[in-house]
Simulated assay, not measured.
Amino acid sequence: MAQTVQFTEYGDLDVLRVVDAPPPAPAADHVQIAVRAAGVNPVDWKIVTGEMREVMPVQLPAGVGSDVAGVVTEVGAGVTEWAVGDEVLGRSTTPAFSEYALAQSADLVRKPHGITWEVAGSLAGAGGTAYAVLKRLGVDTGDTLLVHAAAGGVGTFTVQLAKARGLTVLGTASERNHDYLRSIGAIPVTYGDGLLDRVRAAAPQGVDAVLDASGRGEIPMSIELTGNPAKVLTLVAFDAADTGIQIHVDGAGRDLGAALREIVDLIEQQRLTVGIARAFPLADTAAALHASRDGHVSGKIVVLPSL
């Protein structure tokens, strides 16, 4: 038996319990992983509280978590690229807040020795989404990108991926995060009244595309800045779909492998950094999700089943 985190009903995060369950057995194209680290994303606590039940229904009892890093312990009959003992990172198909999880072979990349387990387990969700966002917005070298909530999980990856590709990046954030945004290559702009004028002053050349990871009502001004709603993409403002902007809910989708390879390469080149705010043992998964929901940390939150 192995330990895994489950909930039997939607509710506040105290519905989460650590239970014993058999380790999941891999199908032909899957591998079994002994989980060393599993990153926390906002979607995780939204699943538990029921906020995602219309678009991501689950069959109860259910587990949660999908960002994963660990050691391959068993491979499916059709897997040829991985072997027992390989250190990998990516996205799991079974709950990642567990001692063991399954992942499709194609959703994994090799974990370099120089990347910590905490960082490795925090890349797939936010990093993969950032990669997909840039692809959908069609931005390229020399373009100017505005990122709302640039100091958040997806925002941090988007800023750094865009900078590595030769874009100018503006990021909205509270003033306490301005030094951090400068450190990762963004031009910081403060939230609040007068934001449109401040962005125009910071980017007199204009704004080519906008990522909204905030949902604080910046859609109209973002459309005005780009002059084209199709060049505005939101991860959160679903009620603005009728404006013609892009809505993104699919993470990296089929591009996950390419996304992770680019991100890992940039980390090894020291051109992309991932801050770890806090690490929690498996027994404290509810506290980890509380910390994510409260939003008072800077950097990724991670659960360490072997801690």
Rank of each mutant, 00 (worst) to 15 (best):
G215A: 02
D208G: 04
G63Y: 00
S214D: 11
D107M: 12
V274A: 02
G76T: 05
A277T: 07
V31Q: 11
D193C: 01
A126V: 08
V48A: 01
V55P: 03
D265P: 00
A28W: 10
A103I: 11
R36I: 04
D14H: 12
S222Q: 06
I247S: 06
G257I: 09
T273W: 05
Q270V: 13
I184P: 00
E54Q: 14
M56H: 09
L282T: 04
D14R: 10
V154P: 00
A240I: 08
S122T: 09
Q160P: 01
A283K: 11
L225V: 08
T73A: 08
G114C: 03
R293V: 01
A240R: 14
P305E: 09
V31K: 11
G206T: 10
A37N: 05
R293I: 00
V64G: 08
V43S: 15
R17K: 15
G152M: 13
V15H: 02
M56G: 01
P26Q: 02
G257Y: 14
Q160T: 02
T158Y: 00
L196V: 06
A83S: 14
E9A: 15
E175Q: 13
I301Q: 04
L235V: 11
A130L: 08
I276Q: 07
S292Q: 10
T116C: 01
A69D: 09
S105E: 11
L233H: 04
A286D: 09
T234K: 03
H296N: 14
D239Y: 03
S66M: 12
L304F: 10
G275C: 05
G152Y: 13
A103Q: 10
A126G: 05
L16Q: 05
T94Q: 12
A132K: 13
V109K: 00
V35P: 07
L195G: 03
L16C: 08
V264A: 06
G78D: 11
L13Q: 04
R271M: 05
A186P: 01
L181I: 07
A101L: 06
E218Q: 14
E74S: 14
L123T: 03
S306R: 15
V19L: 12
G138I: 06
T129Q: 05
K163P: 06
S222C: 02
K300F: 08
G125W: 01
S122N: 04
L260V: 10
E87F: 01
M1I: 12
V169M: 01
L272A: 07
K46R: 06
P112Y: 12
E262K: 00
P281G: 09
V5N: 06
E54W: 08
L145R: 08
G142I: 08
E54G: 07
T116W: 00
T73W: 03
R53N: 13
T190P: 01
P229H: 03
V264K: 02
